[in-house]
């Protein structure tokens, strides 16, 4: 029943034997000990588990680890490089785009894709871009500020 999979996560290759039913989010959190990706609802609604799979945001609670076989994944742990925060992370920090922080890793991954697709989004485009990510703390206003600030920082970089 078990299957060997090979994945590249945050630039590092892993080979692991997994049960076919193992969800990608549990694989990341428990097999690879990358606990920055969170589980909020188990039904794809909240987006706390968002990661990038082959550069596109997916909800890791709703796909199996075996579906990621041979693929490349970026999680929140892969965003900062050599201790330097990613522009989106820095913007969330500067703009107070988080409170309890539980939704934040998934939110940041969604914003990363949003800004890759649209470098200069309007407020409404930002709202649409984070449609799949729920935050119960911030009322989203500071998150929208953070996305605008990140877009500006990226453009200036």
């Amino acid at each position: 029943m078990e299957k060997t999979i090979r994945v590249k996560v945050n630039g590092r290759e892993y080979e692991r034997v997994v049960e076919p039913r193992l969800l990608l989010v549990h694989f990341l959190r428990e097999d690879l000990e990358l606990t920055g990706t969170h589980i909020g609802c188990e039904t794809t609604v909240c987006g706390a588990c968002t990661v990038l799979l082959e550069g596109r945001s997916v909800k890791a609670c709703s796909i199996f680890a075996v579906q990621a076989d041979g693929k490349e994944i970026t999680t929140i742990e892969g965003m900062a490089s050599h201790g330097d925060m990613h522009a989106v992370q820095e913007a969330f920090w500067n703009e107070h785009g988080l409170q309890c922080g539980f939704c934040t890793p998934g939110m940041i991954m969604s914003v990363e894709q949003l800004l890759n697709d649209n470098a200069n989004p309007t407020k409404d485009e930002i709202r649409h871009g984070i449609e799949g990510n729920l935050c119960r703390c911030t009322g989203y206003q500071h998150i929208i500020n953070a996305v605008e600030a990140a877009a500006k920082a990226k453009a200036g970089a």
Partner: peptide
């Protein structure tokens, strides 16, 4: 002032109970 809590929260290095 931006928060001192945030670096661990935005880099995925904070420890919640399931971690």
């Amino acid at each position: 002032v931006r928060r001192v809590e945030d670096p661990r929260l935005i880099t995925g290095t904070a420890t919640y109970v399931d971690d």
